[in-house]
Design a protein around this nucleic acid. Sequence first.
DNA 1: TCCTACTGTGACCATTTGTTACATTTTGCT
DNA 2: AGCAAAATGTAACAAATGGTCACAGTAGGA
Lengths: 236, 236
Amino acid sequence: MEEILLIDDDVELCSMLADYLGRYGFHVSAVHRGDTGLKEAVKKQYALILLDVMLPGLDGFEVLKRIRGASSVNILLLTARGEDVDRIVGLEIGADDYLPKPFNPRELLARMRAILRRSSGAEATLEPTLLRADGLELNTAARTVSQNGKRIELTDVEFALLESLLHSPGKVVTREELAEKVLGREFHPFDRSLDMHISRLRRKLSGSGTEDDLVKTVRGTGYQLAVHSGASTPKD
Amino acid sequence: MEEILLIDDDVELCSMLADYLGRYGFHVSAVHRGDTGLKEAVKKQYALILLDVMLPGLDGFEVLKRIRGASSVNILLLTARGEDVDRIVGLEIGADDYLPKPFNPRELLARMRAILRRSSGAEATLEPTLLRADGLELNTAARTVSQNGKRIELTDVEFALLESLLHSPGKVVTREELAEKVLGREFHPFDRSLDMHISRLRRKLSGSGTEDDLVKTVRGTGYQLAVHSGASTPKD
DNA sequence: TCCTACTGTGACCATTTGTTACATTTTGCT
DNA sequence: AGCAAAATGTAACAAATGGTCACAGTAGGA
């Protein structure tokens, strides 16, 4: 059931829409003031917000702007009586679409679906690419790494290295594999640069006092990310 | 070569625009009266009609209405006075877009292209195409960008650059790709202009203090737009 | 015409990455 | 155990890569 927030001071319209949209699989929460609407909009994660322009408490445009400052939730603007100026400004401020009042509920439904279709498609690119193990967290989308909540700055090679290790925590990753994935070239027995990068990575990760070292060497084979706490991401 | 019909009584403006647009691959036919404009509009199939509102012979709105009666050709309205009334009425009658005079030829070009793009594609609505991530919002229809609700002014190259990155937030885009899409040429290893544009773009985006920089460098490969607040990753 | 904004280029600098050399550890052998 | 060879760790330096300043060229607008 998709959660919809309806911000409109017309109580009767609200209940009518809640009823209508309810029949099509939407759950509508309605508030009738701009300020409370804004609060609600940022508090909860709605699939879509229907926002009227003429509002008591806080103007609809203002609400729109402030929501946009905090979130990229879908917003469909409802403009009071044919005021097309509103449409224009609304679109430029960042509404996903607009609908002039009075509107046909059917058309509203169609537009809502269009917006949701678009955004669900786009969402596929926003995969939550988090790799975790043992207090380590690597976010490939944000390209950040933190250890026990503390941010760690890594260079690109170090990042790729940790990413490869974190892909299968506890498993040994061969030098050959690492060379290919991290350095993008074949491994040569006398190439020491991998060792260097491991060394640098270790220095940046805390708990590098010989024992408890997160990155363990497997002599003759490769490296492995030590896993102490059982909580990890089963990826294979 | 796209055929454009320009209906405007300002002869000088007409020749200036014909010249300007000609340089961008449009062929502009100009007429200076409403009635002759109407005739021309229905006689031939134009890709787009630029229609001034204040016209001798026949009022611009009237022309618009009558053209619409016979054809669904693209129409961009040029409003003489900045009076919003014009805009409103124009859109309600059925113009695809409007542009208040005096306008920047560049903006006209951008809007013309937007209309043509829309009409050649499937949709013919006024829906904006919004690309978002992490407080950033890029509106390809209005050609605007804002960050956390605040408008940001970008040059064409910067806009194209951000657009390319925003197409796949959190993913690395190679230099080769960017060079082709943004600069329209092949990437040459010693070409530093991409770097410059990235640099300039970063400066305009807030949060450019090394860390949490929205535009991340992936050494040896390209760039990536960092996504921190994945809309799909609720922390609780 | 001048003025302005945008784009591209060369130069210079900081950071990252690779290499060499040497220290240290491990392993195998006697 | 003692020793040598092999593997790994790391410091120091060199090379590559990217960031940005400053300037030049260009195009558009006044």
